[in-house]
Amino acid sequence: MEPVRTVEGRAYPFGAENVDTDIIIPAHWLKTTTRDGLGEGAFESVRAEPGNVFDNPEYAGAPVLIAGDNFGCGSSREHAAWALADMGVKAVIAPSFSDIFSGNAFKNGIVTVVLPQDAIDRLMEVAKTDEITVDLETMTVTTSFQDRFRFELDPFRRDCLMQGLDEVGLTLAKDTAISKYESGIANSRPWLVPQSGGEGRDESIAVESAGRA
């Protein structure tokens, strides 16, 4: 993954609340088997409306997106993060994010910045004319008008983003600890190994609660 230290440039002043992942990328775009090309389907329903921010040439290719409360709610589809990444978005600023979305965004090198609503309101104004800078080093969002909003970022995520680390590789390095845990449960909870992993079909299997008519 590419390291991210700062994200600087124009920002889409989107601002909508409760933007679910169906809005970010509708279900009919999910039938891919790769991660690329989803930017084309991003915000399809929003872009169907005349005068929307995403088709405004002023913001074309903006690396920042400003949104309202509860951004990325709904389905866990990572396609939402891939679609934003494919659009060129590297940071989303909102008062809150759904847990799953912010995890997915992080794994694709997109910074999710939580700021209070009054800061969002101010940034929405600035975004209409000027650039915005998200700096992971100082954990601030700044504008050329001396605005300076501090934000919090999980230290681990911040490190990973700034160094461009691959999470799977990091965890694979913990193989000894994982193997130790596995031999522990093999002793304490041996029933956790599934019965014959899907083989041995029992034709009489019930599909309801036992003891009911």
């Binding site: 997915n104 794994k107 999470e167 799977v168 694979l172 913990k174 994982i178």
Partner: peptide, 16 residues
Amino acid sequence: FGIGTSEVEHVLATQT
């Protein structure tokens, strides 16, 4: 709980 595809990959590779 639901997870994203990068996490699916993480679980497949590491079971964690």
